[in-house]
Design a protein around this nucleic acid. Structure first.
Lengths: 142, 142
DNA sequence: ATAGCTGCAAACTATTTGCAATCCC
DNA sequence: GGGATTGCAAATAGTTTGCAGCTAT
């Protein structure tokens, strides 16, 4: 399943607006992430990206992800394992996390709850809900 | 502020029940974590523990935390920085996370919401809410 | 007595950085 | 052309592990 052209195009125009150069590596990283829903690690993204850009370096993938995250085009995900995971879905959503294998899936939940604007001295911006459980695959294994 | 004796005692008896040897290092690690509310990293715990056990090794702190976590005496916390953080509060509670400095505080929130038992094939056990914002200290700095 | 712990040092994994070459605008 | 970006390799940070000696039970 390829990413729709409009997604690439909107990524390209976002880059231009933000003053980022549009390089094939950047497109490949973003496109890879956009095509996955499983919140891959940097290493996993790197493996995918190499199919399109065989000479890409891991350092570039790290740098690209960092840049895109700073600009809000992708999101770093709360994680429990020992490596960072990324998500191209920057809209407000929540996560389902497998306690057995660490997989993370997006969930849409209608929660009629808004966080307090301020609590314990913190100015609250946003919130995220993590549901912990066992994913379908791991249920089969056990 | 020292930890109350009853906390140490209950930790000791929990260890005995679980078949763990009660070593001064373990007590020091647990006590250190129990005395803090800021979800310290392993390095931070190590620094504190050294005040009581100057010859403790970092590897022991890592191993102790791992052991205590497996037995449910402490909890590994969702994190965004590049090191793991721990929490001696194993009761159900939520987190306030500072987007600027990464500090994590416990919050008690009354949320009249229970997660679905099953969603998208996952068997859901529990959930955690993260509120993201800016902590009091960082509000002052900016 | 002995299984479990610990300290040390070395190994490993994830991530970051310096730098020269290259590429977009 | 020129600053941003890349690839490579080396450096760093965080964590884990092997092993010999020690300690709680």
């Amino acid at each position: 399943m390829l990413m729709s052209l409009s997604n690439i195009e909107s990524f390209v125009s976002a880059c231009k607006e933000l003053g980022l150069k549009v390089t094939p590596q950047r497109i490949a990283v973003y496109e890879t992430l956009k095509n996955r829903t499983d919140h891959p690690t940097v290493e996993e993204i790197y493996i995918d990206v190499k199919e399109k850009q065989p000479f890409v370096s891991l350092a570039t993938v790290y740098r690209t992800l960092e840049t895109l995250e700073e600009l809000g085009l992708i999101r770093r995900v709360a994680y429990f394992g020992n490596s960072v995971r990324y998500d191209a879905n920057v809209s407000h959503h929540h996560h389902l996390i497998c306690l057995s294998c660490g997989a993370i899936s997006d969930v849409e939940l209608n929660i009629s709850w808004t966080p307090p604007e301020e609590i314990m001295g913190y100015k609250v911006n946003t919130f995220g809900l993590n549901l912990f459980g066992i994913c379908p695959k791991c249920q089969t294994k056990s």
